[in-house]
Nucleic acid binder design. Structure first.
Lengths: 103, 103
DNA sequence: GTCGTTACCAAGAAAGTCTTGGTATCATCC
DNA sequence: GGATGATACCAAGACTTTCTTGGTAACGAC
């Protein structure tokens, strides 16, 4: 259950430099202490979608272990999208918290 | 964009006593300062779904203004569901925040 | 030589939400 | 007296995201 936050999480992960899909998922899971789990069936469609929209660019390269991997990096549009989604997320969760966590 | 939080928001709203659909939506919008907007096309399907699952019970009655309205109230199962969803939401948003709001 | 990890991809199903439309009553304002 | 806005409900279908399940392949460890 990613609740529409996956795009922002991927974009944010890539602010640390280019990464391949598998590494992005691992970063999100590790950093969130497994509170956020990214299934591959969610991850790759999200990457294609975001590349198609111009938020990411991909090229084939190698992983740290020397294996074939597709490396994604942020575009300028991706950075703008991240800023917008982060602010929207902040506002939305603040609104939900006012209701859900009251009392 | 409700990101799967609508069920929990409705359940929480009903802890304040029985309300009809329109009043639930207004409460959520007002309490969140319009950060969370509930479209009717999202609201009513959610209410049916939750009634079908035994989280809510409905009966016809009157609104504050004396108009015909269907009043929903929480069941015991609904309370349990609210507790579970609230905790899941808390954990999930904490995980997302660790990534998205870092730096 | 099987298992776990790394790495990618495809197809279809499921779920939730949104869009658009409809019904009806009542109060207010021009 | 007619339009508008608010209150209150409902239906149908489209859309998007996510999940499930399956597949390919290479590598190391046991």
């Amino acid at each position: 259950m990613l609740h529409g936050s996956l795009d922002a999480l991927i974009l944010k992960t890539l602010t640390g430099g280019p990464r391949h899909g598998y590494a992005i998922a691992k970063f999100i899971e590790d950093t969130s202490d497994d509170a956020v789990v990214v299934e591959e069936g969610s991850l790759y469609p999200a990457l294609y979608r975001m590349e198609r929209r111009g938020w990411l660019e991909a090229e084939w390269g190698e992983s740290d272990l020397g294996r074939r991997a597709k490396l994604y990096r942020l575009t300028r549009q991706g950075r703008a999208q991240l800023a917008a989604e982060t602010e929207a997320w902040r506002l939305f969760t603040a609104g939900v918290s006012k209701i859900l966590l009251a009392q």
